[in-house]
Design a protein around this nucleic acid. Structure first.
Length: 427
DNA sequence: TCTGGGGTCCTAGGACCC
DNA sequence: TCTGGGGTCCTAGGACCC
């Protein structure tokens, strides 16, 4: 059996952990730039605050209901996430934990006796809460997709389930599928939900009444076929081992204030490139592909999108590199070629791709391999200083110093667990 | 004038996830 | 006035190979 462990209202839970007075109060956490609502406590859900809704549209409702609002604090969430995942790794054999996102892990429970599943899962939940202060829900079923179904129902009926639900008989599975709206199925997003409802498919169960071929045809080929089989109880999505290097590394941001000059755009792109390069080095990798994208502000009448079409450009470097200066140089050339005077921009980003481990950088017949020893030592020194001090105390001149475009974060909590100067104080 | 079959690799774009 | 960020996988289609 496969389980999924999912932290309840994770970002809100992190904020509350250090402010126990907020325990039974409505709390929400906002996305970067204080753009929209991305985490809600049960109390906030109860007063009708919508997930993903823009902050500026909900501001009045939040105030009226006394909802406490936080900007997002990823240092804090990342650290607490790590504690939860480490607890899971302590409680399960090697290779049985697959971290799926910041607040979710799949766990392989094949080694647990069927009769012991319930008690094991409950004790797992209790230990996580005791050790980390974060409450979790656990869904268990024969496949990943079904464990997500179980998890959703466990969360929805906390009083009945105690946040743990095990689907271990065909009858329980069928009932669970009947209670699951198609749009809430893992792998069914907005487009597919719309399409399926046109076919009269409104629950997960309705989908299982079709055939695998039908799912293949209508839901994106093998992806849909796989999902169909998973819902029928045949595992098709294996547990993944920890990925050593990512395939792509992106740093993209909306601007705090709109940008109109090339100079500011260059600063932003240089900053994002430096950040992406840092992530690259942290996983001991190098990249050959670099893409720069800029997004103009522009009303498109009648369009769902609130911004103009993204302009992007990409280059392939002669040799994979992890050196900030080399990547910045390429990125700046790209942004200059994309920029159009007279337009106002609201977002920019950098994507590194074609990523290889630094030990296997492929030679290039036509490019002289330079001696990078010194440059790499410099990068390491910069990374170490930036890591042990705070933020980006050392940066490249191209990143600029004024940074009018930096994002807004007006209600961020302290980094209680990752910065000495922000440790909580006891009187 | 007629013009095969079986591949690989790459990129762009679409769908999804949290 | 103000709507996030960082990923994954898959497919289709074009260029190219013999």
């Amino acid at each position: 059996m496969i389980g999924i462990v999912d932290c309840n209202s994770f970002y809100c839970a992190c904020e509350r952990l250090f402010k126990p007075d907020l325990l039974h109060k409505p709390v929400v956490v906002l996305s970067n730039n204080d753009g929209c609502i991305i985490s809600r406590s049960d109390e906030a859900k109860a007063v009708g605050i919508e997930m993903g809704s823009p902050y500026f549209m909900q501001k009045n409702d939040l105030k009226k209901n006394g909802v406490i609002t936080f900007s997002s604090n990823y240092h804090l969430y990342g650290d607490l996430s790590w504690r939860v995942m480490e607890t899971l790794r302590t409680m399960l054999p090697d290779g049985c934990v697959e971290v799926y996102s910041v607040d979710e892990s799949f766990i392989d429970l094949a080694h647990i006796e069927p009769t012991a599943l319930q008690s094991f899962t409950v004790s797992l939940k209790n230990i996580i809460e005791q050790w980390t202060g974060i409450s979790v829900s656990i869904g268990v079923a024969p496949t990943k997709a079904l464990s997500k179904v179980a998890n959703r129902l466990a969360k929805k009926n906390k009083q009945v389930t105690g946040c743990v639900l095990i689907l271990n008989t065909d009858k329980k599975i069928t009932q669970a599928l009947q209670k699951t709206p198609i749009a809430d199925v893992w792998g069914i997003g907005y487009q597919y939900a719309k399409k399926l409802s046109n076919y009269g498919i409104n629950t997960a169960y309705d989908l299982t009444l079709r055939t695998e071929n039908w799912a293949h045809q209508e839901l994106g080929g093998v992806v849909g076929a796989r999902l169909f089989r998973e819902l029928k109880g045949f595992p098709c999505i294996d547990m993944q081992s920890e990925r050593v290097t990512k395939h792509m590394i992106a740093t993209t941001r909306m601007f705090g204030n709109p940008v109109t000059t090339l100079h500011e755009l260059e600063e932003a792109v240089a900053t994002y490139t430096a950040r992406a390069a840092e992530k690259l080095r942290r996983q001991h990798a190098a990249a050959r592909g670099i893409t720069v994208l800029i997004v103009p502000k522009q009303e498109v009448k009648g369009s769902y999108y609130r911004h103009g079409p993204t302009k992007s450009g990409a280059v392939r470097l002669p040799l994979a590199t992890a050196l900030t200066n080399e990547l910045v140089k390429a990125a700046l050339e790209l942004v200059r070629s994309l920029f159009e005077a007279g337009k106002t921009y609201k977002k920019a980003g950098v994507i590194l791709s074609d990523i290889v481990p630094e030990t296997v950088i492929q030679g290039n017949l036509f490019a002289q391999a330079p001696d990078n020893t010194k440059a790499r030592a410099l990068m390491e020194a910069i990374d170490n200083i930036n890591f042990s001090m705070r933020g980006d105390i050392l940066k490249f001149a191209a990143s600029g110093t004024t940074r009018n475009w930096k994002m807004r974060q007006e209600m961020r909590s302290p980094c209680y667990t990752t910065r000495w100067e922000e440790l909580p104080l006891l009187k």
